[in-house]
Design a protein around this nucleic acid. Structure first.
Length: 476
RNA sequence: CGGGGCGUGGCGCAGCCUGGUAGCGCACCUGCUUUGGGAGCAGGGGGCCGGAGGUUCGAAUCCUCUCGCCCCGACCA
């Protein structure tokens, strides 16, 4: 057991907080609800950024940067949007010692400021599609915060695209959803459900919202990314129009989508254990930690050069670091690097040196294997990929174990109370049934699955005809 | 905003009820011995007890006010 970390089985919520603090991903700041992302956490974010940014650029998106401040009036132009965001906005009223003529809202999201510019830039169908993304911070004055999962200020990327037709916009929204799914599954090793949000859960101002949903170890849903088809709602509010191929003026079709530093919280919650973090190799800042073992100076002089040459050997093959500190014992280092979630540890001591091998230990299950030093370069990448895959498989198995189909409300209620998870049940489509379920069980509709199975049934609550199952869960 | 908890060396806490000028563990520094799952011994440095006011000969401790943080709920990526 790692010292100072609450066990998951004792108090999952405290385990999470302990882990984030102890592994030095983040720390509380002097500002309420705001956290400091420490180097360990930020390196993780940088790796996520790098991969996702590459995927977005590969699909034709470019990065840009828009202002932090938004004139207050902009927010009010789209009725639903202001209703959704105004209550959680921070507003600047003073600047340079004077009261401002127009208050400035610190962006909670950037649709309005970005689209005011789009309206200026777009004249013709030849200007479309416009595919921009920005990496930025946003501020939402949440009533209750939680490290990474919900903080007053957070980092994210927000994509904002403009299209000629409704169909193109819809294709874009689904393309992004698929990128998000791939990114989470292939890089973060987090299996996700994809689907559409109900009217109650959709983005303020959107026509339709799609999302990816992960399941944490305490069996709650974590919304990990959203992709919105904005239709022409914002185009009308910000006059984003263009002359189409027939020579007529037409409002543009827009999308917006984002993932945030919440993903870091997701990685912690989905993969972590009582020893600490477990980072998926593909995004782990350090993939392999080399730990030397010696009893005396003579052994140290033998081991250290060998360790250095192994590190050099792995250059370009894996992200490696070695911990040659003399003030800590090997046992201490084992625990410390496990806490930090480094996927693979390589131990090199006198016994290994004699055999010209090393001991590799997986963070996932502490399984050890001996690797001849000549094979390190070829074997390590294979081991890392294996850990990546096992991590995903384990998370997927957990999700499957905690997913079910339920057809009567009593079972549904007791399940949500005792052993929640993803519960697939029939829903008639009425907001009233959705909110009653929430009131009774705290569960909400996480997604309406993309693919129709064709299976019809009766709404779990009212019994009316349902066109298909939707996925309920208690959400973060 | 409602409920609960907490502010005492860097961190975690005890002391407060029954006032007498601060203690423990970890961390840190020095030295020696150690090092294959969180080493041992010895020595050492560091806090005026969230803030303000009051009671008292005397306040970390009692009273009043205040600030802040964390957790649980309603709002939410």
């Amino acid at each position: 057991m790692s010292k100072g970390i609450t066990k998951r089985s004792d108090d999952y919520s405290r385990w999470y907080t302990d882990l984030v603090l102890r592994s030095e991903l983040a720390d509380y700041s002097p500002v309420k609800g705001c956290m400091v992302i420490r180097p360990n956490g930020y390196a993780l974010w940088e790796n996520m950024q790098k991969e996702l940014d590459g995927m977005l650029k590969a699909t034709g998106h470019q990065n840009a940067y828009f202002p932090l401040f938004i004139p207050e009036s902009f927010l009010h132009r789209e009725k639903e949007h202001v209703k959704g965001f105004a209550p959680e906005c921070a507003v600047v009223t003073y600047g340079g010692g004077k009261e401002l003529e127009e208050k400035l809202v610190v962006r909670p999201t950037s649709e309005t400021i970005i689209y005011s510019m789009y309206s200026k830039w777009i004249q013709s169908y030849r200007d479309l599609p416009l595919l921009l993304n920005q990496w930025a911070n946003v501020v939402r004055w949440e009533k209750r915060t939680r490290l990474f999962l919900r903080t007053t200020e957070f980092l994210w990327q927000e994509g904002h695209t403009v299209h000629e037709t409704e169909q193109e916009a819809e294709e874009e929204v689904l393309r992004i959803l698929e990128i998000y799914r791939t990114f989470l599954e292939d890089y973060l090793a987090i299996p996700v459900l994809t689907g559409r949000k109900s009217e109650a859960e959709k983005f303020a101002g959107a026509l339709r919202t799609y999302s990816i949903e992960a399941l944490t170890q305490d069996r709650r849903a974590l919304q990990a990314g959203t992709s919105h088809n904005l239709g022409q709602n914002f185009a009308k509010a910000f006059n984003v129009n263009f002359q189409n191929r027939k020579g007529e003026m037409e409002f543009a079709w827009q999308t917006s989508w984002g993932v945030s530093t919440r993903l870091i919280g997701g990685v912690v919650m989905v993969h972590g254990d009582d020893q600490g973090l477990i980072l998926p190799p593909r995004i782990a800042p350090t993939q392999v930690i080399l730990i030397p073992i010696w009893k005396n100076d003579e052994e140290m002089r033998e081991i250290l050069p060998m360790l250095a040459s192994i590190q050099a050997d792995l250059k370009g093959v894996a992200r490696v670091a070695s911990d040659t500190r003399e003030e800590y014992s090997p046992g201490w280092k084992f625990n410390n690097w496990e806490l930090r979630g480094v996927p693979l540890r390589i131990e090199l001591g006198p016994r290994d040196a004699a055999k010209k091998s090393v001991m590799a230990v997986s963070r996932l299950d502490r399984k050890k294997c001996v690797i001849p030093q000549g094979e390190i370069r070829s074997r390590i990448p294979v081991l890392l990929e294996e850990i990546q895959k096992n991590l995903y498989d384990r998370a997927l198995a957990f999700r499957e174990e905690n997913s079910s189909e339920v057809d009567d409300y009593e079972t549904f209620r007791s399940l949500m109370a005792e052993q929640p998870g993803f519960v697939n049940a029939f829903w008639c489509g009425q907001a009233s049934c959705e909110s009653k379920v929430k009131e009774d069980t705290k569960a909400t509709i996480r997604v309406i699955p993309m693919k129709e199975t064709g299976e019809k049934g009766a709404c779990i609550l009212c019994g009316n005809r349902s066109e298909g199952r939707v996925t309920f869960a208690k959400a973060y």
